[in-house]
Amino acid sequence: MKPDLTQPMPGDAPQDKPARKTLKQWLFDYRLALIVAAADLLIWIFWPAQAPAVIRNTGDYLVEMVVILIPVAVLMGLFEVWVPKQLIGKYLGRESGWKGILLALLFGAAPTGPLYVAFPIAAMLLKKGASPLNVIVLLNAWAAIKIPQLLVEANFLGPSFMLVRLALTVPSAILMGWLIQKGIERSGGLDIDPAGLENIS
């Protein structure tokens, strides 16, 4: 399925033809970022003592975000055109069983990036036929059982802390996936339009 690249992005104002974005649309897309920038400005003016910490934190996270977003975007492109639906369906689909769960756990735990880049990847996997169970397991693993994070945890809080948390988190992650999959099945499927998925990335 080829994505229709002429479709407007989500959050766009309705438009008749996919023309270049106007300034107004740009402002609308970035409205939340602009509000935060305005808040930063207010802090800088009225509370200058706090400003350096805010600027430093924002800068650090900003660099991390842009650095990881570039390869993730390319990965999304590669996924879109290169990975056949059957492949994802076979390894992460509803029939994939424990192997699918294990694969999702390993993929989630692999050293990659912050959680917010997992959402578009998860959406892409859903669109390509992965089961909700495996997608939830992937996200839960990505959030709470990253391998580099486990090493740091063992180092700072002790191996027993890390192991107990891991032993509790893995079955919980899978159980949640199973519960959510059942819930989604009972309530009539996902509330995202599978045909429109390429537009949300």
Binding site: M9, P10, L32, A33, A73, G77, L78, V81, P120, S201
Partner: peptide, 17 residues
């Protein structure tokens, strides 16, 4: 793929910022 990548990047950027 590059087209989808560019579109993904700018699609995610506003809310991530």
């Amino acid at each position: 793929a590059v087209k989808v990548a560019v579109k993904s990047f700018f699609g995610m950027l506003p809310i991530l910022l």
